[in-house]
Structure formats: structure tokens, C-alpha cells
Write a protein that binds this DNA or RNA. Structure first.
Lengths: 114, 114
DNA sequence: CTAACGTACAACCAAATGGTTGTACATGAG
DNA sequence: CTCATGTACAACCATTTGGTTGTACGTTAG
């Protein structure tokens, strides 16, 4: 979760997600679009990749970047859960949808946060 | 947007959001719940506040923290927009909903059009 | 009034971020 | 083969982050 939201917390990375949603793009092509060095874009892609938002696939000497739609859905689901909590819906929903099965609880209360 | 997602990219802060969704809590009460100093929690609350996720209200010598539901909705909307983009729905939706009016474009590019 | 409580804020520190440049190495084009 | 292209990665730097402690200040309880 941390990595997911952190990856989304940068305008350049969000833009990369948009661009690579429609059709895959090589890192070089991406880099041409931004006012920063190739290496910097490479790092942004790496952050997105670690967060599972993007996957790379080699084609010849190029590395094609493709966004993973499911990852964003995961982030959205997390926000939904958060929203549901303070709307008091969480208890009802938990029972109705049996969310307790595998839902990430994400509670740092008893352990170190970082 | 950056601040919003950045604020969400920390387990402690997300937990604070949950706790302050149901009923307001003073910063001291919050601090008791986490394995860190009062000042650290204070900073986390400040980050949430800057992101507009939370508002503080003074009651006597206490400072009550309350989550703003609309802010999370904003984040969710941003993700929806992102998701819609690479599903090819964006063009259709843009026209249908006239998103071009005031919607935050969030595009750091100076290069070729998107 | 005085003491304890809740808060604010500054100073400091280690680690992570976001950027740079430079170098090395495959791979495809000519 | 040779060279330009696309990538990877290390080293470096300034700034931000997330945490600490310490100090100061207003407010409430006794």
C-alpha cells in the first residue's frame, strides 16, 4: 500500500501511467516526453514497477512499459475501504461481503510503522 | 494531488484517517495509539491537514482531529480518471461529461500532445 | 495560584527522494 | 564489422521525510 500510494504521489509518474495505458511505450519514448534526463524517467518507471503499477517487457533492445489496470483498482479498493470505515458501513459490509477473508487490514498500531 | 497521495502513502496516516473518521480525537489520544513520540504524530496530522484530508478544531486545550470524507472522494475520483484513461473510455467520457471544463489535467509535459 | 495537561515549534539526525552525470553493455541498423 | 540506439547502473548531490529531544506557551483541574 505504501509503495502504491507513494508511486501515485508524483505528477510525472501519474502521467506515465496515463501514457502507457493506451499502448505500450519504450522507456526512451517516455523520456522524450519529459523535461528530465533519461535516467530520471528510468527511476520513475522503476518506482511504478516496484508498486506493481507497471510491468516491463523486452522487445529487442527496447523495454516496453505497460500499466497494469488491476493495480489501480487495488488502490481504489483501499480508498473505498477507508471511506467505508468512517461512514459506519464497514461493519455491515464486512458481514455482508465477508470481507474478513483476505482483506488487508493495514494496521500499524502494535508494530513499528516503517 | 501530490500531497493527497503522499499523505495516503503511510500506514500510520491511513490509520489516523480511520480512527478520526468515527468521532473526533485529540492529538494526544491519537499519539497514545502509536509507538512514536507525540511530536511525530503531530507531524503526521500536519501532513494530513496540508493534504486536506483532515481538519483540526480547538476545544479548550485540546485539538480535535476530524477526517474530511470529501478529500478521500477526491482521491478516488482521480484514480477513476486514471483508470478510465487506459480503458479508452476517456475520450467518450470527456465529451459526455465535458470534463475539459475545469478538471485538473495534471500534466507536467511540455512535449508532444498526449 | 500552581501544577499538570495538551499543544506548538525549533533544532537536529539518518535515511529516502528526485534529480544529475558518467560509464558499461546489448542489440539492431547500415 | 562498426556505430548509433536503448538500457542499466553507480556515484554524487540537494532537498525532503520521518523520527527524535527540548523548550515554550496557553488552558484547565485542584
Amino acid at each position: 500500500m505504501d509503495q502504491l500510494f507513494h508511486a501515485l504521489a508524483d505528477a510525472t509518474r501519474r502521467d506515465i501511467l496515463r501514457r502507457c495505458g493506451r499502448g505500450e511505450l519504450s522507456v526512451s519514448r517516455l523520456a522524450e516526453a519529459y523535461p528530465m534526463s533519461f535516467a530520471a524517467v528510468q527511476k520513475h518507471v522503476a518506482v511504478l514497477e516496484r508498486a506493481g503499477l507497471v510491468s516491463k517487457e523486452r522487445r529487442g533492445r527496447e523495454q516496453l512499459v505497460r500499466t497494469d489496470p488491476d493495480a489501480v483498482s487495488r488502490a481504489r479498493a483501499a480508498l473505498d475501504e477507508l471511506e467505508a470505515t468512517w461512514r459506519g458501513r464497514v461493519d455491515r459490509m464486512a458481514r455482508l461481503l465477508a470481507l474478513d477473508s483476505g482483506q488487508e487490514t493495514d494496521n500499524p498500531t502494535r508494530g513499528p510503522a516503517r
